[in-house]
Design a protein around this nucleic acid. Sequence first.
DNA 1: ATGAAAGCGCTAACAA
DNA 2: TTGTTAGCGCTTTCAT
Lengths: 331, 331
Amino acid sequence: MATLMDVARAAGVSKATASRALQRPELVAESTRLRVREAAERLGFHPNAAARALTTGRTGMVGLIVPTLSNPFFAPLVTGAQREAEESGHHLLIAVSEYDDAREAALADRLAEQADGLIMVTPVGTDSALRERSQRLPLVLVDRQVGRLPAVVADTATGLTQLLDHLLDLGHHDIAYISGPAGSWADQQRRAALAERAAQAAARLHVLGPLPPTFDAGIAAARDLPRTATAVLAYNSYLALGLLHGLLAVNRRVPEDISLAAADDLSSLRATTPPVTALDVPLDEVGALAFTRLIDLLAGRRLTVTSHLPSRPVIRASTAAPVMSGVTAVR
Amino acid sequence: MATLMDVARAAGVSKATASRALQRPELVAESTRLRVREAAERLGFHPNAAARALTTGRTGMVGLIVPTLSNPFFAPLVTGAQREAEESGHHLLIAVSEYDDAREAALADRLAEQADGLIMVTPVGTDSALRERSQRLPLVLVDRQVGRLPAVVADTATGLTQLLDHLLDLGHHDIAYISGPAGSWADQQRRAALAERAAQAAARLHVLGPLPPTFDAGIAAARDLPRTATAVLAYNSYLALGLLHGLLAVNRRVPEDISLAAADDLSSLRATTPPVTALDVPLDEVGALAFTRLIDLLAGRRLTVTSHLPSRPVIRASTAAPVMSGVTAVR
DNA sequence: ATGAAAGCGCTAACAA
DNA sequence: TTGTTAGCGCTTTCAT
């Protein structure tokens, strides 16, 4: 590997000048700059990252902790962050916490040693741990708000109320919400927003759960649904897929007998029979924004505290007006 | 941040001894070792990764390049590799090539600067580029074989022939294979294995494609299926999901009119109506093994050239015996 | 078993 | 505008 010294020698300048020509070209005469660059090119010079990190105190790496990659929900988040990372010449260190608090803490500690900053998607776990970590290291939270810590959240709570509005417009007034993981920040937000909206509209809202956000839990939930409910909102796509299956198993047709909608929008939701009404969440933007916010933090800027990104209902065939049922039909 | 010097001072020894006590305990007297360790603990000492990388020439990081994260197919691969990485005290640098050759090359170059070695999942792209890269940097290939380069492959070709056998056993003898992306190594393997097996069994095999491995391509493929085929094998789950949908649209019922099976096994395949017969691929093991093989490489060991991991058919309701059709039924 | 000292490759004062 | 010099924190000879 060619070192800076080699380049300097080849260009007939000192190490310092070579370094400047490459990193801070404005500090160097045009002719030398060209000479140095040419030499660097010719020798295939790449600055040694470790050496640079040692002198500057910056590694050029950013850690990203996600709960899982198996839920394709997180893929666009990672991809979005990655895209920004590349553009700003950073590397992304990705770690998977598997929804495990202890693991997450350990990973964060390890990453903190290597990275300039951290992006954490941490739906569960305590606030205080995050507060403390934020003291020691630039930190951006995703889909979670803790005090005034910098955060980027996809506004699925508002999105869900829009989905609720859609159901209300169709004529539903007895609706179930299948809630997500116990202790989930996002779920609490969603539940609260839905409860408020339902109260305003004088509609009945059953809350089931908390439930693990899985296909199987959805199947089980289908059996526990109050018989009066004519529509159901699910915390996420997996629960919705399970519900779709489970409802079929207990002979309730979607949307004839019951309408179904979900909070995030996995691509498979459009491939089901019927396709499921859902909430499109701009996860790639969330990831990208979280990254740029972190860069801002690293640069000492500190703008908005929490950025909200809107989510958007996508109406499909799984939601329809309720059919007049039993008592009502007799009237 | 406490440095090694701080620890040495606190323990009343030299930097060298402190370093040894921490990294090569066997070279140090028990009593000093304890003293140093205690001091390190007390000061919360963490060795500076950059400094260590600078002296040792090792970064402790391994790069992993995958084509995408949006296909949940790759998630277990990443998770498996990650798990091994943690265990051996390495970090994983993940990069997404988005099936783009140029991008992949650029990412690999960048990672090569930071990482001790590279794991590449690179279904398309030229062999020579990989050969060359392998000269410069320890490299393990996943799901692809190039000459004698170290590789870990999930044996989906054999798995698919087992799926084919299953169809033959059911009585099918006119079968379509919907092939995957143009130039895909895995697809070539699968096609060849299927063709050979079909020939042995004197069965008819139609090959459609190459096709992008997407839901939409599956829908389209359903229309182009030869009418004589009583069963169809798909390159992956997305194509299978699309086929399932598309077949319904052209009024062919699964499995009554046509059987359907796919080469990988996304969880959503068990949630469809009917659930789809598929191939369970141990991706997490593939990822983990690729990582340990890379560690072996880094340690100068070089054992088997390519490791094959078996995949396993999972029979579900989408495959059944063909119904006697037209001519045959009349006999 | 321990210490002294060199050096990994780079950047950043400071001088010139 | 350019060069000299001093580290950054660690590991590793080479002595002792």
